[in-house]
């Protein structure tokens, strides 16, 4: 488990690793573009997976699919809700996590590791990267979301 930040609300603890970037919707983006693969790896944050409940199905756009930023990358259906997850970058899906087929619960069990959704080769990583949140920014965004939840009647 990578080093990270965390927040606790009641009996829940939400982790935010510091080695990656985030979208406000709760998708993490781990850059591998400095490696020969030139890819990013994406998945659901700990907060998003805990808030959404046990995952029943996960459908990710297949490898080879070209996406613009914000186009739907994946649909994750949990026992509680259906999440439509936008792609954090424009690019081409390179690989989809094969574990999601038979054991989509891996998203709940290890959201920042084995529960990754896909790798994507970004078209313009430099530009898309500028629109993502750093770990501290995401933590504070998440804190506001948790606060809103707690204030709901």
């Amino acid at each position: 488990m990578p080093e990270g930040l965390e927040m606790t609300a009641g009996k829940f603890t939400f982790r935010v690793p510091e080695d990656r970037l985030y979208t406000a919707e709760g998708i993490w983006v781990l850059s591998e573009v400095d490696r020969p693969s030139n890819r990013i790896r994406v998945g659901l944050t700990d907060y998003l997976q805990q808030h959404s409940g046990d995952v029943a199905f996960a459908f990710v756009k297949p490898s080879g699919a070209r996406l613009s930023a914000d186009e739907t990358l994946a649909e994750v259906e949990t026992i509680k809700t259906l999440l439509e997850l936008p792609s954090p970058v424009a690019g081409t899906v390179v690989e989809v996590n094969p574990a999601l087929n038979l054991t989509p619960e891996v998203i709940n069990q290890d959201p920042y590791g084995e529960g990754w959704l896909a790798t994507i080769e970004p078209t313009d990583w430099g530009a898309d990267r500028a629109g993502l949140l750093g770990p501290r920014e995401y933590l504070s965004h998440m804190q506001s979301q948790v606060q809103e939840e707690l204030e709901k009647p």
């Binding site: 046990d54 029943a56 199905f57 259906e77 026992i79 619960e105």
Partner: peptide, 14 residues
């Protein structure tokens, strides 16, 4: 497990 039953009967969302 309720989750497994839901996986077999996706139309039945509680």
């Amino acid at each position: 497990a309720v989750l497994d039953a839901f996986r077999r009967h996706r139309e039945l969302k509680a």
